[in-house]
Design a protein around this nucleic acid. Structure first.
Lengths: 211, 211
DNA sequence: GTCGGCCTCATCCGTTCGGATGACCGCGTC
DNA sequence: GACGCGGTCATCCGAACGGATGAGGCCGAC
């Protein structure tokens, strides 16, 4: 019997998972909680096999929660189960040690299968997620933004002017312009606004979390 | 007995709603479907009291679906039930004739209450949504963007330069600049990138739908 | 009919941006 | 040690942008 901890801030969604997993003879819900903090508390005190973890939640969020849970002794396997599939979310989840990344439009059967596979030591990625990772690796080899460029890009996405970015980063305006020129080349755009838009679309930066 | 049609492209979510409503003696699920098109087909052939409608779905989407359902003879009441609360989503839903706007992090009890109230002829807005509407009306009287300005803003959000916007809109570059100046004033920003960011944050424009 | 809002356009001016070029440093690799 | 890469900075220049001002036409409201 595989025991599952469900972590999601939407009670309806937790009910849905309960309903789906309740029909499976080899799966059982150990508990369902509404935040990463509660999940950590539960996983620390109890023994569960798999954690189904939402990413975007109030508080510490699912990625950080996954990292903490993975730091436990004899940690459960974490499957990230979320609506979004931006590059930022995916890397955050995988970096935190998630063994699976499923999207919420998945079919119930796929979810149960994923739980079984991950419990057995495997890993599961939603097809779209797998594609994104491959895509990124394809374009990334030469096109990946350096940490500094990423930082500049983030400030750019706040609508700051070059001078303001320079001040925030304690740089000369020239340096900022140099970074921007590289960013434009790598993103294949020719102005700052387009850079922000494409970076946001491709999930390189996260603009807003409006829920 | 109030019969409910559930429309959502997430099967898990439909299961959740089933589980929640199944416990209520005075509510019953007539059917659950995964698209607005299916919802229209069902509502045309059957008699239901309330439709719980997701907004962002593949195909025609929940707002258009709501509009079509409201055009039926003796239409059911539609409650929009979604994760997002951008201005664009809210106005689209209410314009389409939705009698309620709930967010998916709502408590099961609130959802059941909302269904009962809407079935009885009332209207229900999630607190956050109500706030947004009030906020918008407060700032809107003088700050609302004109249709033309909105159009310019949308092209701006594609990263286009003034000249390109002018060509797309068959305008002179000067006119575009005039519109931009007004947009900056109304949004309280001082450059195009910041305009795009704040417009996106406040839901004035919809940048990406990444699911 | 006057007023105000929206849309259109022009000119002028200072600032900002984007591109090109060249340079120096530190670091890891071959 | 040579090389590449990332990060830093300078200078120069043309293009784009943002602000201010003025102006005409259209249309709905008072």
């Amino acid at each position: 019997m595989i025991s599952v901890l469900v972590v999601d801030d939407h009670p309806i969604f937790r009910s849905g998972i309960r309903a789906v997993i309740g029909t499976q003879p080899d799966l059982q819900i150990a508990a369902d909680v509404g935040s990463a903090e509660d999940a950590i508390a539960y996983a620390t005190d109890h023994c569960v096999d798999v954690v189904l973890m939402d990413l975007r939640m109030a508080g510490m969020g699912g990625a950080a929660g996954t990292a903490v849970i993975n730091a436990l002794t004899n940690p459960p396997k974490v499957i990230v189960f979320t609506t979004f599939s931006s590059d930022g979310d995916i890397t955050a989840a995988l970096d935190a040690g998630a063994r699976g990344y499923l999207l919420k439009d998945a079919h119930p059967d796929d979810i149960c299968d994923a739980i079984r596979r991950v419990a057995a030591g495997g890993a599961v990625l939603a097809p779209v997620v797998a594609e994104r990772i491959v895509d990124r690796n394809r374009t990334t080899t030469s096109d990946q933004l350096s940490p500094r460029e990423l930082h500049v890009l983030e400030l750019l996405a706040e609508g700051l002017a070059n001078r303001a970015i320079a001040q925030r980063l304690h740089l000369s305006e020239t340096t900022v312009k140099t970074h921007l020129a590289h960013i434009y080349k790598k993103l294949d755009v020719d102005n700052r606004t387009a850079a922000v838009v494409t970076a946001s679309e491709s999930g390189i930066i996260r603009t807003v979390d409006r829920l």
